[in-house]
Design a protein around this nucleic acid. Sequence first.
DNA 1: AATGAATGAGCATTCATTCAT
DNA 2: GATGAATGAATGCTCATTCAT
Lengths: 195, 195, 195, 195
Amino acid sequence: MSKAERTRQFIIEKTAPIFNTKGYAGTSIADLTNATGLTKGSIYGNFTNKDEVALAAFDFNLQQVQTILRSEIQKQATAKEKLLAYVQVYSNFLKYPFPAGGCPILNTAIEADDTHEALRKKAAGAINDWKDSIIKVVSQGVEQQEFSPSINPEQVALTIIAMIEGAMMITKLTGKTNFRNAIMQSVEKLIEDLK
Amino acid sequence: MSKAERTRQFIIEKTAPIFNTKGYAGTSIADLTNATGLTKGSIYGNFTNKDEVALAAFDFNLQQVQTILRSEIQKQATAKEKLLAYVQVYSNFLKYPFPAGGCPILNTAIEADDTHEALRKKAAGAINDWKDSIIKVVSQGVEQQEFSPSINPEQVALTIIAMIEGAMMITKLTGKTNFRNAIMQSVEKLIEDLK
Amino acid sequence: MSKAERTRQFIIEKTAPIFNTKGYAGTSIADLTNATGLTKGSIYGNFTNKDEVALAAFDFNLQQVQTILRSEIQKQATAKEKLLAYVQVYSNFLKYPFPAGGCPILNTAIEADDTHEALRKKAAGAINDWKDSIIKVVSQGVEQQEFSPSINPEQVALTIIAMIEGAMMITKLTGKTNFRNAIMQSVEKLIEDLK
Amino acid sequence: MSKAERTRQFIIEKTAPIFNTKGYAGTSIADLTNATGLTKGSIYGNFTNKDEVALAAFDFNLQQVQTILRSEIQKQATAKEKLLAYVQVYSNFLKYPFPAGGCPILNTAIEADDTHEALRKKAAGAINDWKDSIIKVVSQGVEQQEFSPSINPEQVALTIIAMIEGAMMITKLTGKTNFRNAIMQSVEKLIEDLK
DNA sequence: AATGAATGAGCATTCATTCAT
DNA sequence: GATGAATGAATGCTCATTCAT
């Protein structure tokens, strides 16, 4: 990794939690220099503009979440166990190194949908990838006769994602972690009922 | 209604969709003057600062949503029908005069949770009120033996809200309204299964 | 006194201490409405603009000082005693109802000399009147052979005023009232040496 | 001297006379950009806010006065001659490069006493330093038997300062330079009488 | 005679970005 | 390749004043 690449990476790591907490519009270049100790010139030497940093920060934050989830999912053998890994992770949210500020897809989705097309696309892509990966697991479960053939994998995927993101929003907003747990129990029940 | 009250209301009505679309930080005073045709001085003559406009705009947006939902819910007789009213409304989202920019609770929750305590409180209060009103319906359903006594009304309420808000986010982000419909079908199934 | 005149007087009395404390530029119309409980319209109904209020407030503040000084001076019989009345008054500053904010001539002189011609003229007039009234006393003292005929009454008057105003500035600035007393002792010595 | 330091110094030099003439509240950032030809961003790149410029400008103005006085005082040998240097300087005010707007201590004292604590402290510190430096000269004069041991050096110092500042105010206000000369003659007499 | 609502210029400050060095 | 200095448009907000009612 070249010096330039290392600096780039350093900037991304230090600023990703800020973008995820304050949002794109709420994060200033001054926030970035404060967080990194670098100068404005250095930020602009490594990124063409604020957008590019925000996009890279989103990728970084997303990857953090994905790493956690993939790691827990691949430990599991059956489709049902893999789906339940989501329940396990989000019910024990604090035990995992989630990015500060909560779910980056959710945060970015809400801020960017009407105002920042590039970020919106990234978040939409992340949702689609997530959906596809759940569909894959559910389809495997159907094939291996774990789940009923009558179920609609896309609907299941979208529903699980909606419940998780809804739970994240409600919990972050109210500060009540047992709200998240209650919703995650509903996710668990939904998964149990797939058979 | 005094002139001042009328102007205040006019400002709120004209600017509420802007706050709901661009967010608090993304909405400038210039946006407010452009939307109303009034001058900065006039805005500040009727509100002490941007916060106060934003707070009033949130109330206005929230009320719009609540009016729609209450209207549809009170048309229904049974607890189940009342809950299904949510499914009906959100599945036919575009037929109702929802505020531009989507669900104000969701939008406000995500932006304000880490950055704007007064707005966060308002959004949290709205979620709690919503939850309580669903709990009330579910509890009535239990009492009137529509629903099984083993169900947990608060869990049901939180789950329905999470699914709706998750659906709103996903649909707004991806532009795919059938994603919302798929999730709303899951909500319908959840309600049907309460018996 | 008509209603209008009474309102005018009321505004002057309530706002004079504010102008004397915050200065002309530092005092806003909002300060005036806050201090009086009246509306902007009411202020502008009784005065054509802020200048006119400031000018009237200066007159009011000046008159307060003059009333104190004249009262103490006329109690005295000889020229020397009359001059010593200044020492007595300023050495016991807090016992007299001086306007809040200190000497209005000094305050106005410093702010207005380069920026507000109308106020500057008023302050300059006040200094000249003051000087003339001291000259008159000193001249009487010379005529009545209390003081040496070789003294220059104008020089004495200007020196006494300079010492008093200098003392006011130093004391207000440092908060040390014994600084004022030390200087007032020098004024006393100067008066004693006139013989 | 770095570029930043040079710009900083440039801003101070160009704006110090403006602060001394118009006062802190009366000087706008636009005044600073007009005087320097720089942009607002450039002013704020070199100073954190208007306060910091004002404080630096005060220091600059004060130093100008101090430089003049020290230069003339150190030319003199005896204590009496050193004190008379004040008379000489202020009687020939226009021959020296005093800051435009008059005495910065006086100007700042009057504006800041009730409204700007940081500036008030600076002005108060300047008065105290000035007083101490006169006390030192007077005390030397007593030690070297130029002056009577019965005199109070602090009282002398305060009196001289009060007379000078009073003279400055009166002269600036009325435009009559012979008023200053008359008062300076009184200062001279006071110094002659110290023996 | 007094009010309340509006004006629009002006305020201090921050913004993302550029560019000479 | 990195920095420090500068830009100028935009930020939220306050100002003295006007005027219809």
